[in-house]
Amino acid sequence: MDIAQLGQYVVNGMMLGIIYAMVAVGFTLFFGVLDVIKFSHGDVLMLGAFTGYAVYLGLGALGIEASWLQLALVVIASVLAMAGVGALIARFVVLPLRGAPAFNTLLITLMTGMVLRECVRLFFPAGSNPKPFPRLLPDTQWAFDGFALRLDSVLLFAAGCAAIAGVHLLINHTRLGLAIRAVAQDSETARVMGIGFESIVLLTFALGSGLAALAGVMNGLYYNEINFGMGLLLAVIGFSAAIVGGLGSIYGAILGGFLFAALQTLGAVALPFGSAYKDVFAFAVVILIIAIKPTGLIAERSSERV
């Protein structure tokens, strides 16, 4: 393999890593505040990407052509809409099940995700076909010895890092973050501090879902294609990443996301017919890691929960 190809794998792996990490951070946030697995998370990501696409079509119909403006509005609309959807799911699906076994929440949110997925497939115009996601980022690229580094990849990666850093900052250095962590550790005592439990849960779900929407749009911008089923694999991978990193820890989620992407990339590079087996390889290694370290690489004990 030559340098150019290797460079391409690395860039691709980094992009996957940041997207997985963003999804995994959501799982970790939800688990942190409420001890639940919200499996509709991947479909919220998909819905975010479709919302962004719909906004792009709408802007086109309105004659707004400036791509930076399109980009800004696509991102803002998608993130805000999914923050709302996340809060609604929390309010009407997850919170009413509080007190029921965690499996029920997992099952119901899995079904919620299925409903979202089917709604997009049935009600979005020609929803069962893949959609061409627009290129809204500058197409500048730098060539190194046959390997072309695209500016849009760099920008997307930076945006993902900034988003995760922003969430981390919010959780660890703001009043809202303090409330989220207090609720995560002991919701009853948090209430006694005057923290409104329900509003904090809704905000946390809004935060994680907004992050997923951004990941969905980034995914669309990077691959220039979205489809109604894209959330499913991303959810499974994001969830595995959160588990393998240590559910409940943001660092664990980031580590898990990049680890999974690295394994996939390694599988694609090193195995014969690699691209066909890369997922099998990555999941096999993840299963192995979980078998060896059941609490995840960054155990909750030694890390701060969310």
Partner: peptide
């Protein structure tokens, strides 16, 4: 709050 620092615990009191 075991996993909050002492100062964060105090700040939680003044939420």
């Amino acid at each position: 709050f075991a996993k909050l620092s002492v100062e964060e615990n105090l700040r939680a009191g003044a939420y």
